[in-house]
Simulated assay, not measured.
Amino acid sequence: MATAKRQIVDASATSTRRPGRLLRDGTLPDRAYERILAMIADGAIAVGDKMPSEHELCGELEVSRPVLRQALKQLRADDVIVSRQGSGSYVVRRPERAILDFAPVGSVADIQRTFEFRAAVEGEAAYLAALRRTEQDMLRLKATLQELDRRIEAGELGVDADEDFHVAVCEASDNCYFTIARTSMKANILTGMNLTRNLSLTKPRERLALVQKEHYAIFDAIRDKDPAAARNAMRSHVENARKRVFEGKTTAG
């Protein structure tokens, strides 16, 4: 048991001190969340393993029980761990290890919440865009997709072009509050986009092509004035991005 605990501490400490990561202030629960996520991503706590007791984790992470429970609550919401009555909590998913390389320290929990925000807000924006879009809107959306095609062909990340597409969808909704709400979260959104597109380059390049296929599905639904399909395509696109990052899936996003 002592050896296992030592391995858990070492994995967590290494992950939160990785050179080159940007420092960012975070709440205590967010930092506890990230350290536990690092243990799981590094394999110190494997899929199928029972989580250490709250008493052990509080001691290792040097946090109070309320702080730890908030972190564990977020991990359950993210489908990384599950609680089994009378037995404890178990790891059910191992997120991409690279998120701890690319994401600023203390931001992982915020990135997860940002994906939830985007799925809700951008899904409704796409719904209204399909009802209200103009020919000028379609020309702009097509231009952003063509630029993304060019970036993929050149082997570039294309984060700014990706952002341009999503902004264009919001503006095509003809409701400025979607754009305003999204702008208020722009820093977090760009961090998430940088993360997902960087992760795509750590795997076969075809992943970015799959992402682009989802963009075209959104475009097609808006062009065809099919609001339900546009909403579903956008929500699916954002959710797939979250899954690839936090659940190690190979779906597009």
Rank of each mutant, 00 (worst) to 15 (best):
A2H: 15
R6M: 12
R6P: 11
S12N: 09
T16W: 08
T16M: 13
R17I: 12
R18N: 08
R21S: 01
L22K: 10
R24K: 13
T27F: 02
P29C: 00
P29R: 02
R31K: 06
R31D: 03
A32T: 12
A32K: 08
A32C: 09
Y33Q: 03
I36Y: 00
A41D: 07
A41C: 05
G43E: 05
G43P: 04
K50E: 05
E54I: 06
L57G: 09
L57V: 06
C58M: 14
E60H: 13
E62K: 14
E62R: 15
V63Q: 06
R65T: 15
Q70D: 14
L75F: 00
R76G: 07
R76K: 11
S83G: 07
R84L: 13
G88S: 05
S89F: 02
Y90C: 01
V91M: 00
V91Y: 02
V92Y: 04
R93M: 07
P95W: 01
I99P: 01
G106F: 00
S107I: 04
V108S: 05
V108D: 05
A109L: 12
F115Y: 13
E116H: 07
F117D: 04
A120K: 08
G123F: 05
L128R: 06
A129D: 01
R132P: 01
Q136R: 07
M138V: 02
L139K: 10
R140I: 12
K142R: 09
K142A: 08
L145F: 03
L148G: 04
L148I: 10
D149A: 05
R151H: 11
I152T: 06
E153T: 10
E156P: 06
G158R: 09
D162I: 04
E163I: 08
D164P: 01
A172T: 07
D174R: 08
C176H: 07
F178G: 07
F178H: 06
T179A: 14
R182W: 11
A187T: 12
I189P: 01
N194I: 03
L195T: 01
L195M: 06
L199M: 08
S200R: 13
E206F: 12
R207E: 15
L208K: 10
A209C: 05
A209L: 08
A221V: 03
A221Y: 08
A221N: 03
D224E: 05
P227N: 08
A228S: 13
M234G: 00
A241R: 03
R242K: 07
R242V: 04
T250N: 15
T251S: 14
